[in-house]
Amino acid sequence: MSRRVLRRPRPDDAVLLPRGTVAAIRADLATVADDVVDQIIREVPAYEDAFGGPMGETIRGAVQVALGGFLSLISDRRGPDALAPRSSAVDGAYQLGRGEVRSGRSTDALLSAYRIGARVSWQHLAAKAVEQGIEPATMASFAELVFAYIDELSAASVAGHQDEAATEGRMRQRMMERLARQLLTGAPEASVLAAAERAEWPPPTTLTAVIAPESRAGALQQSLRRGTVQASDLPELDGAALLLVPDADGRRRDALLRAVGRRDCLVGPARPWLDVRSSYDRVVRARSLGLAGDTEAHLPRLVLTADPTALEDLRSQVLAPLDGLRPAAAAKLRETLRAWLLHQGRRDDVAAALFVHPQTIRYRMTQVRDLYGDRLEDPDTVLALTIALGVEEVRG
């Protein structure tokens, strides 16, 4: 908001209003304060209950003190800075702004209250000044100073609100990141529950890990379910952030996937909230494989690459009969055998999948049987071949 600054007094340092006029206005301040509070309650819903009881009396007293301080300032002859709001008034307004954050009220509500307070106060002050016979030119200067004074106080309140909100936001973010790290490191349940309580975070039933680019994580978090936890600076996530989304399981998963959209994110499985580490491990592995989107759509790839060295040992062992062939011939037989396994030996389907004649499939499978013999009838060998050759399918 724009901030008016109280101008300095005239060169002769004369007071703006006579002391008798100031005294008459001061005697009316209790009525002014009552009217200000009543109008704020009536016009700003956020204060409807807040100003009841002792709080209302406190605010009435604060209005009287603020306006009383202003009257002291304009009737004082103490030099060029006499009209600057006293530090106590500014400090009080600043602390009021901080308190509004702790009470859960926004700057919109705060500024609305100041606008109403300025309007109502001026109506009373102007009426009393006119009653005292103040000239129009003096009234104009009086109005300027009243509104400039209230602007100074409202600016101090806004500054207090912003500072407190920033401090509270940083503290909450630190607590949420600490909670995320405890969840991911397998801290004792009691410690995790205590961290959740400190962060005022009600534990959900499930959590789903989502990896998002750091540049998009903040906006994405705002679009997700309330209570989504964000964690940055994790060693496995260079250039990315982690979001832990509460209760995005079942039919709610579709809403999560729609929200993620085309944001280059990875979405893990929903897990009981204390077991979210397994969802995080899933998305980290999927990221290392260059995958994107819903990890549920990549389960075969994730399973087949869970232990790369074991997979390579299995491939070496079960495909050893092909080692003596030329590379091109071995590749054709691997391709044919994989299709034969996937199509359960249906020759026409295998031929259609490979775009060759069924007789070609017959010829190649005769070669395969010559190499493997009776092992092609062994369920364990068939399983091993399916796994070994299946990785080529999911890579394709």
Rank of each mutant, 00 (worst) to 15 (best):
G99F: 00
A93E: 06
A113I: 02
L96I: 04
A109V: 06
Q95V: 10
L125E: 05
T107Y: 10
A137L: 15
K128R: 06
G117E: 08
V120W: 08
R115P: 00
E131M: 11
S103K: 04
A93M: 02
L111N: 08
G133F: 10
S106R: 10
K128H: 08
G104Y: 00
Q123L: 10
A113Q: 08
P136H: 02
Y94G: 03
Q95H: 06
G97Q: 05
I134W: 12
A93V: 04
A93R: 07
Y94R: 10
V101L: 04
Q123A: 12
H124M: 05
S106P: 03
Y114F: 13
L110Q: 10
S106F: 14
Y114P: 02
I134S: 07
Y94C: 05
A126R: 15
Q95F: 12
I116D: 02
A113E: 03
I116P: 00
R102K: 11
R119G: 14
H124V: 05
D108Q: 15
Y114V: 01
E100W: 00
S103M: 10
R115Q: 14
D108H: 13
S121P: 09
G133T: 04
E135M: 10
T107F: 03
A118P: 00
S112T: 11
S106G: 01
P136W: 09
L111F: 12
G133Q: 01
S121F: 13
S121Y: 11
E135I: 13
R115S: 15
A129M: 08
G104L: 03
R102G: 06
Y114L: 03
G104P: 02
R102T: 02
A129G: 04
A137I: 09
